[in-house]
Computed example of a mutant assay.
Amino acid sequence: MKKKTIAVDMDGVLADIEASLIECYNKECGTAISRESIQGLSEEDAFHGRTILRGILNSENFFRTLPVMPDAVESLRQLQENFEIFIVSAATEFPMSLHEKIGWLGEHFPFISWENIILCGSKRIINTDYMIDDHSKNLDYCIGKPIMFTAFHNINQTHHLRVNNWKEVLETLEKTL
């Protein structure tokens, strides 16, 4: 029997990009923003414009050193028992991130085959049974069942099934078996 497929985003879902963005932004700008202070803001509003944000995202080793989301490793291992997992990241906007993301995945998720890693631009072409992402722009095109992973920038969006952490992801997907 063919396993159902899941597309899993990296940044904001597997990797805690919020923590690193806040830390780098505060260091660069001499500010003291917190996770709480940016809830409900867009990325551009939270980090006062695209220029500083793009500079941080294009800095060397930014993506390679992101912390792993709590319970992500164990959850993907468990999900692999019943699903085929694809890691899908819209990485080509930040070309320096390609090598870093491959290295990060190899370190933290060595059980994910290179054949199941998709670094792309748009995710509109992804055709899986489920997609877990923190951006509506990706989930809105999902052919299967979209699952929104909570992040500061999507907290006010309500048009997709929401999960707040990896324990909720497991609970949600185990109901489908």
Rank of each mutant, 00 (worst) to 15 (best):
C142P: 01
F83E: 04
L161P: 05
E115S: 15
L98C: 13
Y141I: 05
W104L: 06
Y130R: 00
I117V: 14
T150Q: 12
K101L: 01
I118W: 03
N154I: 07
F83L: 04
M131S: 01
V163H: 09
E74G: 08
I155V: 15
P95N: 14
P146G: 09
L98W: 03
I143D: 05
F109R: 08
P110M: 04
L79G: 02
G103L: 15
H135V: 03
L161H: 15
F94L: 10
P110E: 10
L79I: 09
E74W: 02
I155N: 15
I118D: 03
T158M: 14
L98D: 03
H135F: 05
V88D: 01
E107P: 05
L98P: 08
R124G: 09
T128P: 01
L98K: 13
F109H: 09
E107V: 08
V163G: 10
T128C: 07
C120Y: 11
H160M: 12
A151Q: 10
S136Y: 00
N138M: 04
C120E: 05
D133K: 01
S75P: 00
L105G: 07
G121W: 11
Y141L: 06
S89G: 05
S113T: 15
F83C: 03
Y141F: 10
E93R: 09
R77D: 00
N127H: 06
E115K: 13
M131R: 00
G121Y: 12
P95R: 10
L79E: 04
F149T: 04
V163D: 07
F94C: 02
S122E: 13
S113Q: 10
H135R: 09
F109L: 15
H159N: 15
K123T: 00
H108K: 11
N156P: 02
C120V: 08
I126N: 02
Y141Q: 06
M96G: 11
P146D: 05
D140C: 08
K123A: 03
G103R: 10
I112R: 02
R124S: 14
I132D: 00
E74Q: 06
H160S: 13
G106V: 01
F149Q: 07
I126Y: 04
D140K: 09
Y130K: 01
D134I: 04
W114D: 11
F109M: 11
R162K: 14
K137I: 11
R77V: 10
N154Q: 12
I117N: 02
D134G: 11
K137D: 15
I155M: 13
T92V: 12
N127K: 04
E93Y: 07
Q80D: 12
Q80Y: 11
W114M: 09
E74K: 03
D133E: 10
L98Y: 11
V88I: 06
W114E: 07
N138C: 10
H135L: 09
V88G: 04
I155Y: 08
Q80I: 02
H153S: 12
N138P: 06
F83D: 04
L105N: 08
I112Q: 05
E115D: 15
R124F: 09
D134A: 06
S75D: 00
G106S: 09
K137L: 12
N116H: 13
D133V: 01
H159Y: 10
F83I: 09
H159F: 13
I102H: 02
F152N: 14
I125W: 08
I147T: 03
L79A: 05
E84H: 08
